[in-house]
Design a protein around this nucleic acid. Structure first.
Length: 959
RNA sequence: GCCCAGAUGGUGGAAUUGGUAGACACGAGGGACUUAAAAUCCCUUGGCCAGUGAUGGCCGUACGGGUUCGAUUCCCGUUCCGGGCACCA
């Protein structure tokens, strides 16, 4: 019987669908296992062979766990909101929903061909109201929450034992009613800026004023901050969406702009996001990337008074030990202090500088890092030395980090050093023996000196001289705290996430505006559905695309969406025109899969308690500082609310490597239509041109297909070598423009899904980036044919019930051991060779025993499910192979026949003779010592020592 | 600049936690079958040297050292490639 993969695969796809083989239900009697892929954005280009890599890897694991008896959740869905569909809509007028739907259908068709064990009954799409209901709901919950280290009701003594958590905003309001902000800092309440008011002042505020104040504390808040504005995309972007100063999508320039936007107080969770990394099983490099992104730094905030003024300001430093080396101060240009501290004489110079800074884009700042700055005219008094230091303004200080102001210590900070050299400011070294004539000494090592300097009358009774830097940092912090000069502070690089996008194709905010203040659409009215618009571009007045919607106003009487024309700001109010960013919908989708059709909650308590969190998450590492931070934040928030029972959403994470394209080239002789083969190209002046890899086979060009490929090549002529045209090749990103995209459909059509699955796994470690090379696929296909042929003699099914021989059982159990270990370790690329070896061995043994072949079918089922099903059925089973039991490895079948003796002498190691395997170590050692069994070339030499090494080898060292 | 991960044949990659480096596959070469092709099967395939031959010897896991009877594996230094962060005070 021939291995007819086309029929087999078609048959089982139909049967799996009809039997709902992969549908799962919560089952208290079985242990759960949750496998998840990062859900795809359905792009118009469809899948290429790189996409399914992670899906195949996780599918193998899911099927394996299922065969081990676990109740496996393996869902799939679509991250359906996104820029490409909207850009396409702008160009063509086609509604993004239609484009997205079409793309999803195409994705589904392609995915189905590969034979995944997804439970499609749990499919989610982020753009469907039933789904984004819960995205909107979570946003509202964040609006209605604030964050603190301890409950505001807790007393002084139990504060430290309380947990940091999101809490209802009512708790904060009650506190303000009673205390104002008095004592608030001791609860560690997260805030945008530090506010001070009394209970009387609070109670005297108007409702709007109070709402304004609460924005300072809400986890989802409307904040006026510097944002990354991308004019070409017409929207703001989050930090992780900006790469090298240009937008991640499209590569358009990004400028800094002060705008009022919805933000999420991700920074409140910075410490928990950092701590949580210790509890999860991710790669070290990914954790490191997140640690860098969170960027914790411990330091001190120290207050500096302004000379001849009652003003003062605070700086942040991690080098409190360098207080005696401060020679000037620097403010960020965007700092509010600039206005306050600029003197009349310097006003015009400062204005000029601010204008210069404003017109520079992020990209300019990165590419052209020159030293710029301007003197403000004011001086600050160093609280340690009493010296007056000039206050400068420079773009090298960032407004968004620390306090937007620094103390400059040019001797020990390279940036301050460059600035001091450029503007001729003094440099005072503080470390014994350091040379600061050419560059600053930034290392945190050495012995402190000049603190205070000799001959300078110390302003305060304090000296750091003779201490190590570390000791000096600690001593200074302690002193600063005791004397009330400042406080110990931890800063994080992680910023709050900008949550508004000036776009159409995203979740609408369930928010309307009354007197300019945002109000939440009542929870029971969710979801607030995305309205229809005529145009997907911004309005003429520059409003976001939702400004084009005719029906986009909120009637508080009927609690419904009504025509804009009815807006009276009495009972009908304008709705929010921004939409949510891409990461909104992807931040909690793993929870929705647990209970996708629940109309009452994001996830029901029972479903959440059963599935808990994702055991194995597979996806690309490009989400390290985006999705994987946001969804950890989102989940922690839901954990605080009691919605999610686990603080970390993804226990183990595997990053699949990108599959790169392998491009092919033809070489055209300049100014001709003649193409020369690779080996002869150096004899001519040639231009390499990309050629479609689909008309090249084994680097040999199909000449007819090439002529037909493009009209201009119809008359092409060729200079061949050995009668063939050989193409050059290179590894590049897989992309349409390089003509190196390989479509999985074509592979499936030609070789079958099982071959594709096997080959993708065989290509190399899942985590590693590797080039796709279709040439090697024959090997995987040949293997499946061999595997199939073990079961058949001509057209009869050859499996017998005879007792297997020890050699056959050994081959089988070697395989069970290897495959089980390799799946657990995610190293499928080494499991597949084991199958090939076992198949060859058993074929040579002419093994047709059911006791051997049946477990083989189960072993291969995760990798090649279609062929496994077909053989399983042929073996007489009425249930699918998915209900089989994973074979159990038994050591007793693996006994080696012999034990080797290794002999080391004269600096070389040699293998000696074999002992019977059942000889025990002592016998072998005694025999070796007695010289009875040593080979003849060791005659007369003396045994120095005998070492027993793993694998039961005996190592004898001779002299 | 800082942090992380790497470097093995013509190619993708193996090597159980220090124990016969190059599994397995591709490619290449040779052969069998065939009118021919496809398919299938068999042999060779890291380099150098010796031998008619079975075979034997030397070198070899980016480079230079070290530890060890023994190092792709552990340690120190260097080079190169990839990834992350980067005026974050």
């Amino acid at each position: 019987m021939e291995y007819n993969f086309r029929e087999i695969e078609k048959k089982w796809h139909a049967r799996w669908a009809a039997m709902q083989t992969y549908k799962v239900k919560e089952d208290e009697t079985r242990k759960k296992f949750y496998v998840l892929n990062m859900f795809p954005y359905p792009s118009g280009a469809g899948l290429h062979v790189g996409h399914p890599l992670g899906y195949i890897a996780s599918d193998i694991y899911a099927r394996y766990k299922r065969l081990q008896g676990y109740n496996v959740l393996n869902p799939m869905g679509y991250d359906a909101y996104g820029l490409p569909a909207e850009q396409y809509a702008i160009q063509t007028g086609q509604h993004p929903a239609i484009t997205t739907e079409a793309n999803i259908n195409r994705y589904r068709e392609q995915l189905d061909k590969i034979g995944f064990s997804f439970d499609w009954s749990r499919e989610v799409r982020t753009c469907e109201p039933g789904y984004y209901h819960w995205t909107q709901w979570a946003f509202q919950k964040m609006f209605k929450s604030f964050y603190s280290q301890a409950p505001l009701s807790s007393t002084e003594c139990d504060k430290s034992t309380q947990k940091a958590s999101a809490r209802p905003i009512e708790e904060l309001i009650a506190y303000f009613d009673k205390n104002g902000t008095e004592g608030l800092e001791s609860y560690g309440v997260s805030e945008s800026e530090e506010l001070r008011f009394t209970a009387e002042e609070w109670n005297a505020m108007s409702d709007e004023e109070q709402q304004q104040v609460l924005m300072n504390y809400r986890i989802a808040y409307l904040g006026e901050t510097m944002v990354n504005w991308c004019p070409q995309l017409g929207t703001v972007l989050a930090n992780d969406e900006v790469v090298d100063g240009v937008s991640e999508r499209g590569g358009f320039p990004v400028v800094q702009k002060r705008m009022k936007q919805w933000c999420l107080r991700v920074s409140a969770y910075a410490q928990r996001l950092l701590d949580g990394l210790e509890t999860i099983d991710w790669t070290e490099s990914l954790k490191e990337t997140q640690r860098n992104w969170i960027g914790r730094s411990e330091g001190a905030e120290i207050e500096f008074k302004v000379k001849d003024s009652d003003k003062s300001f605070t700086i942040f430093t991690t080098r409190a030990d360098t207080m005696f080396g401060v020679t000037f101060m620097v403010l960020a240009p965007e700092s509010e202090l600039v206005k306050e501290l600029t003197t009349r004489e310097q006003q015009s110079a400062v204005d000029e500088y601010l204008a210069y800074v404003k017109k520079r884009t992020e990209r300019d700042r990165i590419s052209d890092r020159k030293v710029t700055g301007v003197f403000s005219g004011s001086y600050a008094i160093n609280p340690f030395t009493g010296e007056a230091n000039p206050i400068w303004i420079s773009e090298y200080v960032l407004a968004g980090y620390g306090t937007g102001a620094i103390m400059a210590v040019p001797a020990h900070d390279s940036r301050d050093y460059a600035f001091a050299k450029h503007f001729g400011l003094p440099i005072v070294p503080l470390v014994e023996g350091c040379d600061v004539s050419e560059e600053s000494f930034d290392a945190k090592e050495g012995i402190v000196c000049n603190s205070p300097r000799e001959g300078v009358k110390p302003y305060i009774d304090f000296s750091l001289n003779g201490l190590t830097i570390k000791e000096a940092i600690a001593a200074t912090k302690k002193y600063v705290k005791e004397k009330g000069l400042g406080r110990v502070k931890v800063n994080y690089r992680l910023r709050d996430a900008i949550f508004s996008r000036q776009r159409y194709w995203g979740e609408p905010f369930p928010v309307y505006y009354k007197n300019g203040m945002p109000q939440m659409v009542p929870e029971e009215c969710l979801p607030l559905e995305l309205p229809e618009v005529d145009k997907f571009l911004p309005t003429e007045t520059g409003e976001p695309p939702l400004g084009n919607a005719k029906r986009w106003a909120w009637d508080t009487k009927t609690n419904s969406v009504v025509e804009n024309s009815l807006i009276d700001n009495e009972s009908v109010f304008p709705l929010e025109l921004n939409t949510m960013p891409g990461f909104a919908g992807s931040s909690a989708y793993y929870l929705r899969y647990m209970d996708p059709n629940n109309g009452e909650a994001l996830v029901g308590e029972k479903a959440d308690a059963y599935w808990q969190n994702v055991d194995l998450y597979v996806g690309g590492s490009e989400h390290a500082t985006g999705h994987l931070i946001y969804s950890r934040f989102w989940n922690k928030f839901l954990f605080d609310l009691g919605v999610s029972c686990k603080e970390e959403p993804f226990q183990k994470l595997v990053n699949q490597g990108m599959i790169q394209g392998r491009s092919n080239f033809v070489y055209r002789i300049k100014d001709t239509n003649t193409f020369v083969s690779l080996g002869l190209k150096d004899q001519y002046d040639v231009t390499p041109l990309h050629v479609d890899v689909n008309i090249v086979s084994g680097d040999v060009l199909d000449l007819e297909a090439f002529k037909a490929w493009r009209p201009e090549y119809a008359t092409a002529e060729f200079i061949l070598e050995d009668g063939k045209y050989v193409c050059g090749w290179a590894v590049e990103k897989m992309s349409k423009s390089m003509f190196n995209v390989v479509n999985p459909d074509m592979i499936v059509e030609k070789f079958g899904a099982d071959t594709l699955r096997l080959y993708e796994m065989f290509l190399g470690p899942v985590e590693q980036a590797k080039p796709w090379d279709t040439n090697g696929i024959d090997g995987s296909h040949r293997f499946l044919k061999k595997f199939w042929n073990m079961f058949w003699t001509k057209d009869t099914f050859a499996v017998t019930d005879d007792e297997p021989t020890p050699a056959e059982l050994k081959a089988l159990h070697k395989l069970i051991k290897k495959v089980t270990e390799d799946i657990e370790n995610f190293s499928y690329n080494t499991a597949i060779p084991a199958f090939m070896i076992a198949t060859n061995e058993l074929t040579q043994l002419k093994c047709t025993k059911r006791a051997v072949l049946e477990p083989m079918v189960v072993l291969i089922a995760p990798f090649a499910p279609h062929i496994a099903e077909e053989l399983w059925e042929a073996l007489g089973h009425t249930t699918t192979v998915c209900d089989a039991q994973w074979p159990v490895f038994e050591e007793k079948y693996l006994v080696e026949d012999t034990v080797k003796m290794m002999v080391a002498f004269n600096g070389k190691t040699r293998f000696g003779i074999d002992f019977p395997a059942d000889a025990d170590n002592a016998t072998i050692e005694a025999a070796a010592r007695g010289h009875e069994l040593t080979p003849k070339y060791l005659e007369g030499k003396q045994i120095v020592k005998v070492i027993i090494v793993p694998k039961r080898m005996i190592n004898i060292v001779m002299k």
